[in-house]
């Protein structure tokens, strides 16, 4: 067709060959300047969502961990009797041995361990500091009683048994502490679930809103594609792929910064054994990694669905007759 038409009087002075390689341009390229505000909003949303997710997961794990540690466990403290200077320690150790035998015979008890002196000394440390504790100081002896799982030993019952054998002991089943932890962590968890829910709703709403706004700017492109005969699926795929990719990138950036931030903050404020209760700190689990991957994927999915639906709706309602 082209060759048969060369006899027109359109000027051909510029017939320079354009045969050098041209790169195919994307029909819908990334427009850094115009996309940046939306991009930043998505990054921030992903950051907030990830932080909240990590905190919630970490808090949940901490709560479960504490409860598991304390449940099914008693601590028995054999007090030294204050009489006869020399035999005190020996007397206490003897009582501890007997208490161990008595307790070990109970059906509910799995193991009884007499804890070494260090544990008792550690209990005194807050009062005495780390100044060397004199060896002849009368120390209580601690027994660690592990119960068979799902069995409960009444504190009173054990106390009576020991008293009958002439052993004065304090028994702590940690129920008070346990209840406290449960209450506090439930409250914290409830709050973080609430925050998580709100952030998810906000992210979904914001990405839907952002996608629609972004598509309005592409209305002309949609018109032109329709004019040159692009099927609706083609246009919808083009736009939703582009928006979802952008959303994924923003999500990945937000989630990665959130992970980095929480690890850094966790390290700064962690306890001496490297554990910080509501942040993953150095204790990154597989769940944390999954969450960090899930955030951008989820964001991309929402955006893909929204943009697909918006494009199809615009085409059918406004562009098609």
């Amino acid at each position: 067709m082209v060759n048969t038409l060369v006899d027109t009087d359109i000027q051909h002075t510029e017939l320079t060959a354009q045969s050098h390689v041209m790169k195919t341009q994307a029909i819908l390229p990334y427009d850094k300047k115009n996309d940046r505000p939306l991009f930043m909003v998505l990054v921030i949303l992903a950051f907030l969502a990830t932080i909240t997710l990590l905190a919630t997961a970490s808090g949940y794990r901490a709560a479960v961990g504490w409860q598991e540690n304390l449940q099914g466990k008693l601590t028995v403290q054999i007090k030294p009797t204050i009489s006869g200077a020399d035999k005190i320690t020996h007397n206490t150790a003897d009582k501890a041995e007997r208490a161990k035998i008595i307790l070990a015979e109970l059906d509910q008890v799995k193991t009884v361990t007499i804890l070494p002196d260090e544990h008792s000394k550690a209990l005194l440390e807050p009062w005495l500091g780390d100044a060397s504790i004199p060896d002849d100081l009368p120390l209580p002896i601690l027994l660690d009683v592990q119960l068979n799982s799902s069995q409960n030993l009444e504190v009173k019952q054990a106390a009576i048994l020991l008293a009958e054998a002439g052993i004065r002991a304090d028994i702590d089943d940690h129920s008070q502490w346990n209840k406290e932890i449960k209450r506090t962590t439930s409250a914290a968890l409830l709050l973080s679930y609430l925050a998580l829910g709100l952030i998810i709703i906000a992210s979904v709403a914001a990405s839907i809103f952002a996608t629609r706004a972004g598509l309005t700017a592409q209305r002309r492109l949609m018109d032109v594609l329709h004019q040159v005969g692009a099927p609706p699926d083609y246009t919808a795929r083009l736009l939703s792929t582009r928006f979802a990719t952008s959303g994924f990138k923003a999500g990945a950036l937000g989630a990665a910064s959130a992970l980095l931030a929480s690890v850094l903050v966790g390290m700064m404020f962690s306890t001496s054994n490297g554990f910080s209760y509501f942040l993953p700190g150095l204790h990154l689990s597989l769940t944390d990694i999954y969450l960090v991957i899930a955030v951008p994927s989820f964001l991309a999915l929402i955006i893909a669905i929204t943009s697909w639906r918006t494009v199809i709706k615009t085409l059918y309602n406004e562009i098609y007759p």
Binding site: V2, N3, L5, V6, T8, I10, Q11, H12, E14, L15, T16, Q18, S19, M22
Partner: peptide
């Protein structure tokens, strides 16, 4: 495409 652009006098403006 390049041929048609030349024909409408836009050969030098294809970029």
């Amino acid at each position: 495409v390049l041929g048609l652009l030349k024909w409408v006098g836009l050969g030098h403006r294809s970029h």
